[in-house]
Design a binder for these strands. Structure first.
Length: 858
RNA sequence: GCCGAAGUGGCGGAAUGGUAGACGCGCACGACUCAAAAUCGUGUACCGCAAGGUGUGAGGGUUCGACUCCCUCCUUCGGCACCA
C-alpha cells in the first residue's frame, strides 16, 4: 500500500544510524585520500540557527558528500567561534555570565546543526572559549611575542565608544564599528599589535596561487595597498631636521612647490615660528575634533601655512611648508610634497591659494606620441572621433587644448607624457624619469626608492571580558614578560562585573591579580586586556586536526597535546574547500593567512597558505534587507524543518538560485520541493512491483542525460540546476517502468542533496547491505561511488532539428540521429512551412549545426 | 569619484554564439469530493480571432544567427575612497 514519506521519522532514523556507525568520523592519521572541507564556524548566538546558517552549511555539506562519493576521505569539522561581544552584552543586560549563556547556546546549536543532516565529524569539535582551546590562542600570542611579531605601542587607535573597546583597522567600516555601527573615535592608547605588515609582500604574492574568487583577491590586494615610489628628504630652512615625504611621483620633483604635513605630524610644533603658532594651534584643534568620517568626506581642502620653508633638493628652491588634514599621518610618512601641476589633490589645495605663495609648476607636457594618449584624455574617445576628423587630427587638437590648459596652470595633468622644465629629466617619459630620479636621489643621498603598503599592523588587544586573556605579565618596573607555557591556559577570571566602564573588566578581578603575584612575585600585574576574537579564528582549522584528549582538561603544564601534529598538518592542509561569507575578505581571511605564514616561519606547520580553494555563499536577505536581530527580520528554519523535514528545507534553499548568488527569502515554493520528495518516494522508493523491470532505450537515455546534467551542475556548485535535472528525470520516466539499478542510480544522484531521503531509498531498493551498516562496513548510499554516464548512451534514435530562414525560426524537422548532413538539409528545405519562405527566393547560403539547427539564407 | 558583479514572464530562475523562458512557484480550467483541502491532468512571455508580429534594462555594432561577443548609456547591488 502506498504510504506517505514521513521525513521526521525517516530523518531521525538515519541520523541515528550514521552516528552509531560513526559514518563521518575520519581517521586523520590513516586517511589516504584526504579532502578537507571547511565551513566558517558559527558564533553561538542566542538567535540560534537561522536561515543564513542553513544556506551556508547545507550546500557546503552537499559538496562534501559529493566529494566523498568521488572516493575522497572527506573531513568536515565544525566548531564554535564562541568568544565575542554579544555574550558579554547579554551579560551586561541580564547578569548571566557569558560562559553560561554561551554554553547553553552551543548546546542548542549543536542540536539544530545535527538536524541539517550534515556529515560533520563531531568528535573533532572545537569551542574557542574553552580553556582547552584558548590555551592555544595564548600559546600563539607567546610565539608571536618570542619571535618579535607581537609588540606594545602607544599610538592613535580606533575606539568604539559603544563597545568600549579599541578596534583593528579592518574592523572599522566606513568610519564605523563593524559590529555595532557606532562612529569610531581616535584615541591615543598603548596597545598590543601583531606585525602583519612584515608579511605584506608575501600576502600579496601568494594570492596568485590561490583558487579564490577574483573579487576577494582584489579586495585583499587593495587592502594591502602596495605602491612603489620614493622617500625623499627635504631640508628645513633654519633647522637640522629633515622632512621625509613618500611619493609615487618622484618624476615630478621639479614641480614640487610646497610641502604639506599632516596636522598631527611631530615636526609641526618644532618648525612653526612664533608668529604662526596661533593659527597652527587653532587649525590642529579643528582637525583633531573632526571624525575620520568628516575628514574624508569634505570636498574643500583646508590648511594653514606653518611659516616654515623647506628646500627642494633638486633645484634648491625654498618652498613653503603647510599643514592640511587631507594629508594622513598614518600613510607613508605623514608628509607629502605638493605637486599641483600633476596631482589633483595638490591642485585643489593650491589653486585657490596661489596668492598665498602656492605656485603651480608644470613638469609634464601631454604628448600625443605617448601610447594611449587619447585614452588618457578622453576614455570614451575610441569609436567616436568627432566631426569626421582623422585620428591624427583629433590627437593634435586634443594635445593643443589640453597642453595649453595644463601649461597655463589651469588644469592638472595626471596622465603620461614628456618631462619638461626638469633639468636632467627633460624629454624623458614618466616611467624613465621615475627610474632616473631614484638613481639621482640615492646618489646624492637625498632619498631612495621604496615600496609602501597601506596595510597596518593588527591591533589585537581589546578592553573586553569575554575573550582569551593576553598571556603577558608586567614586572614592578612595568616590563612585559610572557606567561610561561606551563601556566597555560592562563585562565579567564570569573570574579568580574560585566558593566563596561571603558577600562578592561579584568582589572576588577582580585583572583587574577592574586594569581599573578603568587606565581611571579609581589608587585607583578597581569595584562588586563583580552584578545580580538579574530585571533581565535585565525588558526581553528589547525586545531580541528588535533582534538584535545577526551575527558576533563588536564592540569596546566600537563596538557599532553601538541599544537598540531606535523604529519597530519602536512597531509590535510591546505584546506581543500573553504566556504563562508564574503564579509571576511579583509578580516578573518587575511589574519588567518598571516598567522599561517608566521607559524610556518616558526616551524610549526609546513604550509604557508591555509585555504587553497575558497567559495563565498550568497547572502540571504529578507525583503531585501540583511537579516539581523536588531531589525527583527531573522527567519528561523525550525518551523519549516518541523513541517517538511530538513531534506526539503535544504533542497528548497539550494533550489532558490545559484549558491554564490544568495537571494531574498520567501517561503512560497517550498511546497514544490515537498511534492517532489513525495513523488520521488512514490516512483523510486515504493516500487517493489517494478523491481524486475528492464530499462527501455528511452529510460536509459534519460538516466544518462540526468547523470551528465547533475554532475555538471554539482561541479559548478549550481545545486539549483542539479535539482531541476533530477526533477526532469522523474517527469521523463513518469508512467514508464524502469529497473532497480536505475532507481539506485537515482538514489545516488540525489544523496548529496537530500541525504536522509537517499538513504531511505537506498535501503528500500535493497542497496548492498544498506541496513547492516557498521563501523567496519559502511554501506550507506553515501559510501557508493558517484555515477558516471556513457556518452554513447546519450544519443536518441531521432532528433529534432530547428530550421531558420534568415535567422528566424520557421520550422522543425525530425530526422534519424545518424542522418547525413545532405539528407538533413534536403529535409529542411522540403519542410512545408519552410518552403513557403523559400518560394521564389535565391538560396545564398545553408548552414548545418550538428544536432541543432539548419540556417538558410535567402 | 574609482573598481567589481548583475539586469530575462506575475515570482525564483534556465540557456558550450544555435529552437529564449528548462525546472519550480503562482494563476486558470478540468478530474476526484456533498464541499473544501490535498492530489492528479491540461494550459500559462506579450499583442492578435487567426495568419503573423514583438520580445532577455536602453541604443548602436559584429554575425547566416546575439541573453551570450564589442561600444555607449541607464539602473541595482557589493567593495574602495583625500593612500600622495
Amino acid at each position: 500500500m502506498p504510504y506517505d514519506y514521513d521525513p521526521s521519522s525517516v530523518e531521525a532514523k538515519w541520523r541515528k544510524r550514521w552516528e552509531e556507525a560513526r559514518a563521518y568520523t575520519v581517521d586523520l592519521k590513516s586517511a589516504k585520500n584526504p579532502y578537507y572541507s571547511l565551513v566558517m564556524f558559527p558564533y553561538p548566538s542566542g538567535d540560534k540557527l537561522h536561515v543564513g546558517h542553513w544556506y551556508n552549511f547545507a550546500p557546503a555539506d552537499s559538496w562534501s558528500r559529493y566529494m566523498r562519493m568521488h572516493g575522497k576521505q572527506v573531513f568536515a569539522p565544525i566548531g564554535f567561534d564562541a568568544f565575542g561581544l554579544p555574550a558579554e552584552n547579554y551579560a551586561v543586560k541580564t547578569g548571566v555570565p557569558p560562559a553560561k549563556s554561551t554554553a547553553e547556546n552551543v548546546k542548542t546549536m549543536i542540536k539544530q546543526l545535527k538536524r541539517i543532516g550534515t556529515m560533520y565529524d563531531w568528535e573533532k569539535m572545537v569551542n574557542t572559549s574553552d580553556p582547552s582551546y584558548y590555551q592555544w590562542t595564548q600559546w600563539l600570542f607567546i610565539q608571536m611575542f618570542k619571535n618579535k611579531l607581537a609588540y606594545k605601542k602607544l599610538g592613535n587607535v580606533n575606539f568604539c565608544p559603544s563597545c568600549q573597546t579599541v578596534l583593528a583597522n579592518e574592523q572599522v567600516w566606513e568610519g564605523k564599528c563593524e559590529r555595532c555601527g557606532t562612529e569610531v573615535q581616535q584615541k591615543a592608547l598603548s596597545q598590543w599589535y601583531w606585525k602583519i605588515t612584515q608579511y605584506s609582500q608575501k600576502l600579496l604574492d601568494n594570492l596568485d596561487g590561490l583558487e579564490w574568487p577574483e573579487k576577494t583577491k582584489l579586495m585583499q590586494k587593495n587592502w594591502i595597498g602596495r605602491s612603489e615610489g620614493a622617500e625623499i628628504s627635504f631640508d628645513i630652512k633654519g633647522h637640522d631636521e629633515k622632512i621625509k615625504v613618500f611619493t609615487t611621483r618622484q618624476d615630478t620633483l621639479f614641480g614640487a612647490t610646497f610641502i604639506v604635513l599632516a596636522p598631527e605630524h611631530p615636526l609641526v610644533d618644532k618648525i612653526t615660528p612664533a608668529n604662526h603658532q596661533g593659527i597652527v594651534r587653532v587649525y590642529k584643534e579643528q582637525a583633531r575634533k573632526k571624525t575620520e568620517l568628516q575628514r574624508t568626506s569634505e570636498k574643500v581642502k583646508t590648511g594653514e601655512h606653518t611659516g616654515a620653508y623647506a628646500i627642494n633638493p633638486v633645484n634648491g628652491k625654498e618652498i613653503p611648508i603647510w599643514i592640511a588634514d587631507y594629508v594622513l599621518l598614518n600613510y607613508g610618512t605623514g608628509a607629502v610634497m605638493g605637486v599641483p601641476g600633476h596631482d589633483e589633490r595638490d591642485f585643489d589645495f593650491a589653486e585657490p591659494r596661489q596668492d598665498k605663495g602656492l605656485h603651480i609648476q608644470c613638469v609634464i607636457e601631454p604628448d600625443a606620441a605617448t601610447p594611449n594618449f587619447l585614452a588618457q584624455v578622453h576614455p570614451n574617445f575610441f569609436g567616436r572621433i568627432p566631426d569626421g576628423k582623422t585620428i591624427d587630427e583629433a590627437q593634435d587638437s586634443l594635445k593643443e587644448s589640453y597642453g595649453k590648459e595644463v601649461l597655463e596652470g589651469k588644469k592638472c595633468w595626471k596622465g603620461e607624457g614628456k618631462i619638461i622644465n626638469s633639468d636632467f629629466l627633460n624629454g624623458l617619459t614618466v616611467h624613465e624619469a621615475k627610474k632616473k630620479m631614484i638613481a639621482w636621489l640615492e646618489n646624492e643621498d637625498r632619498g631612495r626608492g621604496i615600496i609602501n603598503y597601506r596595510l597596518r599592523d593588527w591591533l589585537v588587544s581589546r578592553q573586553r571580558y569575554w575573550g582569551a586573556p593576553i598571556p603577558i605579565v608586567y614586572d614592578p618596573e612595568g616590563n612585559a614578560h610572557p606567561v610561561p607555557e606551563e601556566h597555560l591556559p592562563w585562565m579567564l577570571p570569573t570574579d568580574v562585573e560585566f558593566k563596561p566602564t571603558g577600562k578592561s573588566p579584568l582589572t576588577e578581578s582580585k583572583e587574577f591579580i592574586a594569581r599573578t603575584e603568587k606565581i611571579f612575585g609581589k608587585g607583578w600585574r597581569p595584562e588586563f586586556d583580552t584578545m580580538d576574537t579574530f585571533v581565535c579564528s585565525s588558526f581553528y582549522y589547525l586545531r580541528y586536526l588535533t582534538p584535545p584528549p577526551p575527558g576533563p582538561l588536564p592540569p596546566a603544564g600537563e596538557r599532553g597535546s601538541v599544537f598540531v601534529d606535523p604529519a597530519i598538518e602536512k597531509k590535510w592542509l591546505p584546506v581543500s574547500m573553504y566556504i563562508g561569507g564574503p564579509e571576511h575578505a579583509c578580516m578573518h581571511l587575511i589574519y588567518a593567512r598571516f598567522v599561517m605564514m608566521a607559524l610556518k616561519d616558526f616551524g610549526f606547520v609546513s604550509h604557508e597558505e591555509p585555504f587553497q580553494k575558497l567559495v563565498h555563499q550568497g547572502l540571504i536577505t529578507n525583503n531585501g534587507a540583511k537579516m539581523s536581530k536588531s531589525k527583527g527580520n531573522v527567519v528561523s528554519p525550525d518551523s519549516f524543518v518541523e513541517r517538511y523535514g530538513s531534506d526539503v528545507f535544504r533542497m528548497y534553499l539550494m533550489f532558490m538560485g545559484p549558491f554564490r548568488d544568495g537571494g531574498d527569502w520567501s517561503d512560497t515554493g517550498i511546497k514544490g520541493i515537498d511534492r517532489f520528495v513525495q513523488k520521488v518516494w512514490r516512483m523510486v522508493g515504493e516500487r517493489e512491483q517494478l523491481s524486475t523491470a528492464a530499462d527501455s532505450k528511452e529510460v536509459t537515455v534519460a538516466l544518462h542525460q540526468t547523470i551528465k546534467k547533475v554532475t555538471e551542475s554539482m561541479e559548478k556548485m549550481h545545486f539549483n540546476t542539479a535539482i531541476s535535472a533530477l526533477m526532469e528525470f522523474l517527469n521523463a520516466v513518469e508512467g514508464k517502468s524502469f529497473s532497480n539499478e536505475t532507481a539506485q542510480m537515482f538514489a545516488r544522484l540525489i544523496s548529496p542533496i537530500a541525504p536522509h531521503l537517499a538513504e531511505e531509498l537506498w535501503e528500500a531498493l535493497g542497496g548492498p547491505s544498506s541496513a547492516k551498516a557498521t563501523e567496519d562496513k559502511k554501506d550507506f548510499v553515501i559510501d557508493q561511488s558517484w555515477p558516471t554516464y556513457d556518452p554513447k548512451l546519450l544519443v536518441t534514435d531521432t532528433m529534432t532539428i530547428a530550421v531558420q530562414v534568415n535567422g528566424k525560426l520557421r520550422g522543425q524537422i525530425d530526422v534519424a540521429s545518424d542522418a547525413s548532413e545532405k539528407d538533413i538539409l534536403a529535409a529542411a528545405k522540403a519542410e512545408p512551412h519552410v518552403q513557403k519562405y523559400l518560394e521564389g527566393q535565391v538560396l545564398k547560403k545553408e548552414i548545418y549545426i550538428k544536432g541543432r539547427l539548419v540556417s538558410l539564407v535567402i
